[in-house]
């Protein structure tokens, strides 16, 4: 409880200092927190009562952005895990694609946005394609790594008990790889948020990233721009928190097992 208070008091203290500094300095780029808060209220929570006081911006910008992020991430997860398990259990197959994977992973994904723009046009397909192609690599490479390193004794145990092929994949290889898979998924989730914003900054007419750059370039509304920045930060915080909660549930055994082994 004391630690909790310490943490939040300092955070609040910083905000208060910022408030006074900004209010006295009057630098247009750094509006005081209360103005940002008011801008956020105007942007998202000033809607009609029958809409739960949410504005149309929530439904037009925030939710579609979130949906594209999650769809892109989920598609990348499915592709990455399936291909990763298949490749990870075959050293020969991995050899054929290894140079391509190392190269693909190193390409900064925003560079491909022009290509996706001409192929898909401005819109959600372009964004989802950018996210999928940008975030699939950490998942794929981590899954390959995890699936490849199934413990030798577990391989022999499964063989000794004549485990069927499907149960071998689902019951032994996948759980063995899961800690690595989750590490990849987590990196990819953070990367998805980045690419969602980038793709909307470049080629979109709605969404969080579009509104962000719109507030800066078209309306010069800096409190609104800060509100969008804060929203992105909160989104990242919440997504990461939810992911960790799921990971703790799914990988509970892993923490117990490694905790015991590392006594």
């Amino acid at each position: 409880m004391k630690i909790f208070a310490q943490r939040w008091l300092v955070f609040l203290g910083c905000l208060v200092v910022w408030q006074f500094a900004a209010a006295s300095g009057a630098n247009p780029y750094f509006p005081p927190p209360l103005r940002i808060l008011r801008a956020a209220g105007d942007l998202w929570f000033s809607g009609p009562a029958w809409h739960l006081w949410l504005t149309s911006s929530v439904g037009d910008d925030i939710l579609p952005s979130l949906a594209r992020l999650l769809i892109g991430w989920a598609v990348a997860a499915v592709i990455g895990v399936l291909a990763g398990i298949a490749l990870g259990r075959s050293a020969v197959a991995t050899d054929y694609v290894a140079p391509l994977l190392s190269f693909a992973r190193a390409v900064p994904p925003p560079l491909l946005v022009p290509v996706f723009l001409v192929v898909f046009g401005i819109g959600p397909q372009m964004e989802v394609a950018t996210i999928v192609l940008g975030v699939v690599w950490p998942i794929l490479l981590n899954t390959i790594d995890g699936a490849r390193s199934v413990d030798a004794v577990k391989v022999e145990t499964a063989r000794a008990f004549r485990i069927t092929r499907s149960r071998w994949i689902l019951g032994v290889v996948l759980p063995s790889a899961l800690p690595k898979v989750f590490a990849g998924l987590r990196v990819s989730l953070a990367l998805s948020l980045i690419l969602m914003v980038v793709s909307e900054l470049v080629g979109s007419t709605s969404g969080i990233g579009f509104q962000l750059v719109n507030a800066q370039q078209a309306t010069f509304d800096y409190p609104a721009m800060w509100a969008w920045i804060a929203l992105i930060s909160v989104l990242g915080y919440v997504l990461n928190g939810l992911f960790l909660a799921v990971e703790r549930r799914v990988l509970g055994w892993h923490h117990g097992y490694t905790g015991q082994a590392g006594r």
Binding site: D151, V153, E156, A160, F161, I163, W253, H254, Y257
Partner: peptide
Amino acid sequence: MVFQDYSRSLFPWRTVAGNIEFPLRG
């Protein structure tokens, strides 16, 4: 078969009952 290294031969993601049941599924 019973292996020497039980901690590697048992599946840490399955409970005790799950470990015993696993080979019976086939």
